[in-house]
Design a binder for these strands. Structure first.
Lengths: 155, 155
DNA sequence: ATAATTGCAAAGCGTTTGCACCCTG
DNA sequence: CAGGGTGCAAACGCTTTGCAATTAT
């Protein structure tokens, strides 16, 4: 039981050691500069999703030397290379989240804004059937679920 | 056959007669001004979704007297009152669509940007099960499907 | 050495807002 | 006539871009 819990925690929290993050970058063909590592590390430390501005502010407060433009450029590059996820639930600004690889969806808590991954999406068969009857062939889909997480429900 | 087609067309194209649109507004508790009717009519005439700027440009080109701010204010009000749907698939600007009432999702064609409604969403049971195992209680969800519509697939 | 990356400040762009005027009820 | 609605232009907030200096391979 304790082991299961521990494993679950290990699996759910992205590894934020420098080497692992560096590896994530080079695997994606992204040159691992000091700034990019810094941004990625900040994102890895987040429970919630974060905007470019939030990450920038957090890093500057901490005394890190990064430019706002670099944060934007980094996040957009990482999102393009599928190192980070882009969430659409906020209309005016883009939110980013460091997630596990592979297709999945997100549970966003409306109370504390914590983001959980909803792995293993078996929506495709249903989707293909529903859309197919209209001659529509799906190539991609995004599902965002808003609700209350376990923690917030308790209080 | 002809009858079926006709009925399908009637059902799929929102009624854009002034009286019907006027009714939609008052039912939503929105005062039916000339500008609001104009915006709603423009939206009803769209096959695709449309941004505030697009609708504004279209109306001005047609010689209609509306301000850009009014278009923004109208669309946001109508979206709030659930007269129109708001699509999130475009990151930088908000797209609007006049849809049939009730919970549904959207099929967006990546080629021609036509938007089709995916009625009858029986996702909830699946969602409750998937999220529930994490203690997460969904309150709402949005699903956006991108793909190729029948017309574009043919060419 | 060479090409990519960064920082800054300026520009861009979609959207919102203040306010005087106008209309509708 | 009272109160919401409108138009214009200015203000806003997020994001991108031009360019010279810097850094990684």
């Amino acid at each position: 039981m304790t082991l299961n819990l521990t494993m679950a925690i290990i699996r759910s929290v992205p590894d934020s050691s420098d080497t692992k993050l560096r590896l994530r970058l080079s695997r994606a063909g992204v040159r691992p500069t000091r700034q990019r590592l810094t941004v990625l590390k900040a994102l890895a430390a987040e429970q919630h999703d974060a905007t470019a501005q939030e990450i920038y502010a957090r890093l500057r407060r901490r005394g890190e030397r990064v430019g706002l433009a670099t944060v934007y450029r980094t996040l957009s590059l990482l999102s393009e290379r599928e190192v980070v996820d882009e969430l659409a639930h906020h209309p005016t600004e883009t939110c980013y989240r460091l997630c596990s690889p592979g297709h999945h969806h997100h549970l966003v808590c409306s109370e504390c804004h914590r983001v959980e991954e909803l792995g293993s999406c078996d929506l495709e068969p249903w989707l293909d059937r529903a859309a197919g009857s209209r001659g529509f062939v799906p190539t991609s889909h995004t599902l965002e679920v808003v609700g209350l997480c376990a923690g917030c429900r308790a209080s």
